[in-house]
Design a protein around this nucleic acid. Structure first.
Lengths: 204, 204
DNA sequence: TAAATTTTTGACCAACTGGTCAAAGGCAGG
DNA sequence: CCTGCCTTTGACCAGTTGGTCAAAAATTTA
């Protein structure tokens, strides 16, 4: 019945589909779409290649499904910013949520990074549509905070970029970070640094 | 004579070798090592695949040569930080130099990012060796500045990470940045933001 | 100019790629 | 038990991959 089954997934279908997606995440996040092979994904998922293709129409279908699922979680934290909350607390909370995602879901972060670096061929529309609108809304909120003097004047979009950059850096460049820090846990220092930086930038 | 010619490169050899490296940069920086093909590189370089392999022993040799050349330029700006200069000016200068590299050599930045995301299989040693030592030296300098009260106390390594993250973000995530900013030039706002952030963080 | 050397290429190869398919193996309900 | 559907797989395929090689073309040297 499957081939990208749409409704009434049986227990075994659900199990295999999520096993494939989990395996796809591991492989695609390390080698990118073109650098990954179905054999790799199949082996990581513990099943034969034809069986894998029984559940997903094609290599592309796995990758696309993965990206779609990822994008939800990716945009969600931004929506949680509350215009009526304390500005610094809201932005710091957002930064910490993003940092936690880098810590707990580094592969998702790297999958996303791979896709963007390669020119975002499959999610360019989402970036120019949904993401842009969402960022525009948050930008209005931040501008409002600045106008009312509750935070310093900042370019809201570049502020958001710098939060993205700094938090995702710890997932995407994990190897480099650990090469430099040695045995020290990256995320403790990262959180403190992020806090200091946002305070210094935002508080008048 | 070639196959990774070592000495006495003729005019035509130099021309072709640099054409190949330039083409390799374009292709590898977009698709990563495993996602790129020799045919792509050959076409981008405007020559046949066998001819390309007359100048470089293998696909790996092109990629490795590219990475080696890149690493020099990558580490250099860090070395220019002057312990006897004004702390904020030195760090801001470094950040601006890195930002200029993202603006002028985005492909180099993406090539590097690709390599790191994939676990740095060929430059892990450099990261844990040369890079780590260099960062350690700079960390001592920054710590010295903090101890003498010329800047606020910060974790030097995370400060460096945040400069790397923010500057490289504009090259590596170029598509996303432009999707959000539209027609606005990313680099003007980026420089201002970077300046404000470093001032807020460092000045007592 | 002719010989020697360097550069370029078409034809080719074995390994691997994403994907197909018919048939076999499991598992539920009757 | 058996029937019918869901699941799994071995064998296979055409296209692509990194790489080779002998011979042709171009360039340098004598």
């Amino acid at each position: 019945m499957p081939k990208d089954a749409q409704k009434s997934d049986t227990r075994i279908q659900k199990k295999n589909q999520s096993a494939i997606l989990a395996a796809g995440l591991v492989v695609f996040s390390q080698f990118g779409f073109r650098g990954s092979t179905l054999d790799q994904v199949a082996e990581e998922a513990g099943m034969s290649k034809p069986n894998l293709l029984y559940y997903f129409r094609s290599k592309d279908a796995i990758y696309t499904a993965l990206l779609a699922k990822l994008l939800e979680n990716w945009l969600e934290p931004l929506r949680k910013i509350d215009p009526d909350g304390d500005p610094v607390a809201e932005l710091l909370g957002y930064a910490k949520r993003k940092l936690a995602m880098s810590q707990n879901f580094p592969r998702e972060s790297r999958l996303f990074a791979n896709e963007i670096i390669q020119g975002a061929p499959r999610i360019g529309d989402v970036l120019r549509g949904e993401l842009r609108e969402l960022v525009d809304e948050i930008a209005v909120i931040i501008d409002g905070w600045a106008v009312s003097g509750r935070i310093n004047a900042v370019d809201p979009r570049h502020l958001i970029f710098s939060i993205w950059a700094q938090t995702q850096h710890y997932a995407d460049f994990d190897v480099q970070v650990r090469a430099i820090l040695g045995d020290v846990d990256p995320f403790e220092g990262a959180e403190q640094h992020l806090e200091a930086m946002l305070h210094g930038l935002l508080t008048p």
